[in-house]
Structure formats: C-alpha cells, structure tokens
Design a binder for these strands. Structure first.
Length: 449
RNA sequence: GCUGUGAUGGUGUAGGGGUUAGCACGGCAGAUUGUGGUUCUGCCAGCCCGAGUUCGAUUCUCGGUCACGGCCCCA
C-alpha cells in the first residue's frame, strides 16, 4: 500500500464540504470588504522567495529543477507571488488601492505536527497602493470580521506597531543602518533584546553606541505594556519622557484602533502589544496576529501587517502595503475542537446544505422513461441522487436514509400505471402521491420542507 | 535543528513468542417481492514495511515509514 506523502492530507467528502463552506465564507467576507480573488501558480522561480526571505529559506522549500534545469520551488507562502503578479501583470496601471484576496496550498518542508503540515492552505488578502492608519484598520477589520463570521470563539487579537519601538530607538540616537562588519542594524539588535527580555544586552548596546543605558528601563516598560486600547496612555507617557522621540507611530496606531472599533465586530479579546514584531524585517508599521490558546504551540491562526516588499519588484511607490495571511487549516482545527467541546454539530456555518438531498428511486421499472424528470428536477435546483443499483424498495429506503437524504421520490410499476410518483420526507415520514412530472414533484418537496 | 510517545480490519479498540487474533461501529446479503432509522442471522475485512533473535515473531531487538507531543522557528 502506497502511503500519502508525509505532512499531506486527503479530504473526504464530508471534510471537503466543510472546507468548501469555510472558503466560501471567507470569500464572501472579503467580497463585502471590496476584495477580489486572484490566483497564482503552485510553483514559482526559486529566486522569488530567496529575494523576499533570504537564502536561509531554501532548506524549508520543496525546491527542484525542471527538465531545462530552471530552479523552481513549490510556493511556501503567497505574499511574494502576489507581489510578483502585480509587477508582472502591469497591475500598477490599475486604480489604487488594489484589494486582493487569495487562497491556495503552500508547501514547507517541516516536521509534521497537529496544525502543521507540509502542504497547508492559506487564505490571505493584500491592500496595495495605500497605507496609513485607515488602510491598516480596513485590513484588521476584515480579519476580525472573518473570524467572527466563522463562529470562532476565545481568540485573541494582538495589535502592535513596529514603528513605535523603532522610532523610540532611533530617537535616542540608535542607527537603523547596518554598520560595516555587522549583519544587522543596531535598531534590529535592540528590538531582539527587547523581545527576548535581555535588558543587560540592551544596556550594553546603548553604551556601545554612546547612549545613556538608563534608557533601558523605560523601553522595557514600553515593551512590557499589555492590555486593551487603554495601554496607549501609559505608552504615550513613556515616549514623551524620552528625549527627541516622535509620537507619530503611536498616534497612527491609536487612529487605527479607533477605526477598527467602528468598522468591525468586537473581538473576544483585543490587546495592544508593542512587541508583536513578527520577527521579519519587511514589516514597517502596524503588525497584528491572532492566537487561539487551545491550539497550544501552533496557536497562531492569522498574522499580518504593513510591509515594504514591492520595491523588490521595481514598484517602490506602492510601498508600504498591508495584508494578512490566515492559516486555513488551523482555524478549522480550532473550530472543530470548539464544536466538539460544545456539542455543536455544524463546525462551519453553512457546511450542511439546508435544501437537502433527494433520493430518486425508480423501482422495478424501465428507468429511461423517468430520466427526463431527474434532469428537470436538477435544472430546477434540487440535488438529486439517482438510485443506480436497482435496489429493492426496503434497501433503497435504507440507502437513502443512510446517505443523508431528506426526501425520496419512488416510482414503481403501480405509480407508472396511475401516472404518479410517491414523494416522501425522511425527516417527518410524511408521504404523498403526486402527478408524475417534475413540477408536481418539486412542488411537493417544497411543501414538505 | 533537538527530543519524547505511538502504529492491530474502512473507523475505534482487546490481546499477546505457538490463538480459528476477540469486540463494537461500518459495508454487503437475508429475515422482509411497494417504504428508512429499531431488531435478529450470516458474510466481508486487520497485526505499517524491512532486517535480526528464535524451532517458531503480529508480539522481542534494530532500522525505515507514518502519526502525535515538548523545545526552536514559522502559518
């Protein structure tokens, strides 16, 4: 028996119905926010991703060469392909901003864990060609709207702004340029020290750069701030106490948060956290992420923010842009766990078709005479499953029941004689004879719904 | 990158150096030649792969594969 490759999954009909419903739900939310769906190839040139994330990423890629020895790779994420598409398709000619959404599988060579797969699915959006607090609020609002709409509970949004700490550090005199012989700017080192809680390292860095190490304490206080929108007050106090530090980023974040509150449903938990750095240097402004605690170690289900990437594609005037990626599989995992815990039968809203399936059972007759009725019912929008095995009536009913049909239409010899069909609701048990034509059958089904 | 646990029909499991490998769900057929969900009967279907130890391995050992955890990192 050949097994499925490590870290991949098959989706059975039941699971797939759920995934389709979830995708459709996300898509509908994106559409309501003015976003339009795009699609890019599953594989791309290897360069695309090394340009964005550096050569270190290669070890995590499914990279290969085609028969002409072109270096290619299965895509590990979707943001870079979207950027590439904008440049390549001449989309910079379109009216700005662009609101783009996408969904598809991505591939990373990693160890399999729950919620971590080698083939995983990501839904995401990018708002391109406009930046600033309101554009950022639009993006966050969509993320919140999506998670709210899918019925997820107990999730936490953390919103920060990499500009706040960065401005504080540069305001104090720390350089954002990479010095000769170093591999990162002092500002980045300082951010790392703040993130890791290494105050001694930060103090030493300040001293080495001719800055008073006493500034370590207020920066630590700033980084440790955590709570709702009210934390912006203390943050403002700390920043004001520092010499030469701009409040611009903080003001922007405040504007963003106020707009989000007006644009989106209130999430179960929203925290301001200035250390949401996302660990990536292309983030330049607002950054945010969503966690679901019950998922444990792989609990981050969504992340995004403002970034500068389009200059890599010759489009510096479109920087910065803003977007997020949503971990499709992880959100589903969380929804499944929560549905299980609360005894909810429907995991994703809309995964079960309320119209139901109709079993069409020709019983002991020449089938060809009634096939036009099947076609008409389908054209009328009914979901018809035609009984194909010539089962006897009791078996056919049992079959219809076990595949989840809500209705049966039985046509046997007696019905043909009388020019009728027996329409039955498997939910109520109610049954009636109707005229043998699609309209009458459809009307009977509709009446019993 | 480091590390831990596990693998028995389609699913969930019991067992264990020699067994007809047990049970439940499921699927198929019948009881029941025009009506499902309950019931009864029968059947279908399994020890992840490879090597080693042994008279004999599904059971013990090692390797592989896959899954699931804990760090690191990311989504």
């Amino acid at each position: 028996m050949v097994q499925r490759p490590r870290g991949t999954r098959d989706f059975t009909p039941k699971v797939m119905a759920r995934r389709l419903a979830f995708e459709q739900l996300l898509e509908e939310r994106a559409r309501r926010h003015g976003f339009s769906r795009i699609q890019t190839p599953i594989f791309e040139s290897l360069d695309l991703f090394t340009a964005k994330s550096g050569p270190g990423i290669i070890s995590q890629l499914y990279a290969f060469e085609d028969k002409s020895e072109r270096p290619l790779t299965l895509r590990p994420e979707l943001t870079a392909p979207v950027m590439r598409m904008i440049a390549e398709e001449g989309m910079q000619m379109l009216q700005k901003p662009l609101r783009l959404s996408y969904y598809g599988q991505c591939y990373r060579y990693e160890e399999s864990k729950k919620g971590r797969y080698r083939e995983f699915f990501q839904y995401g959006v990018e708002l391109i060609g406009e930046s600033g607090p309101l554009a950022e609020a639009e993006v966050i609002a969509l993320a919140i709207d999506m998670l709210d709409a899918c019925g997820l509970e107990n999730w936490e949004v953390r919103i920060g702004h990499v500009g706040i700490l960065k401005d504080a550090l540069t305001g104090l005199g720390l350089s954002a340029e990479i010095p000769e012989g170093a591999n990162e700017p002092p500002v980045a080192s300082a951010m790392r020290f703040l993130d890791k809680g290494d105050d001694a390292g930060l103090a030493k860095l300040f001293t080495d750069n001719g800055i008073n190490p006493d500034n370590t304490a207020p920066l630590r206080a700033l980084a440790d701030l955590e709570g709702g929108v009210e934390t912006l007050g203390p943050a403002r106090d700390i920043l004001t106490s520092l010499e030469g530090v701009s409040l611009e980023a903080l003001d922007d974040l405040q504007t963003t948060l106020e707009a989000v509150a007006a644009l989106a449903p209130t999430p179960p938990s929203l925290a301001v956290d200035l250390t949401v750095a996302r660990g990536l240097d292309y983030y330049t402004g607002m950054v945010f992420e969503v966690k679901v605690p019950e998922l444990g170690g792989e609990g981050q289900v969504l992340g995004g923010g403002s970034y500068k990437l389009l200059h890599l594609f010759g489009l510096p005037d479109l920087d910065p842009s803003c977007g997020f990626g949503l971990g499709f599989d992880r959100v589903l995992l969380a929804l499944e766990a929560q549905a299980e815990a609360s005894g909810r039968s429907e995991v994703v809203p809309g995964e079960t078709d309320p119209k139901g399936l109709v079993a069409f059972i020709p019983f002991g007759i020449d089938v060809s005479g009634v096939l036009p009725i099947v076609a008409s019912l389908r054209n009328a929008g009914e979901r018809i499953e035609l009984e194909l095995r010539g089962r006897k009536i009791a078996k056919a009913m049992k079959w219809a029941n076990s595949i989840g049909c809500q209705f049966t239409v039985v046509i046997g010899p007696r019905d043909l004689e009388n020019g009728q069909a027996m329409v039955k609701s498997l939910v109520s048990g109610e049954q009636q004879a109707v005229e043998l034509n699609a309209d009458a059958i459809a009307a009977a089904i509709q009446a019993m719904r």
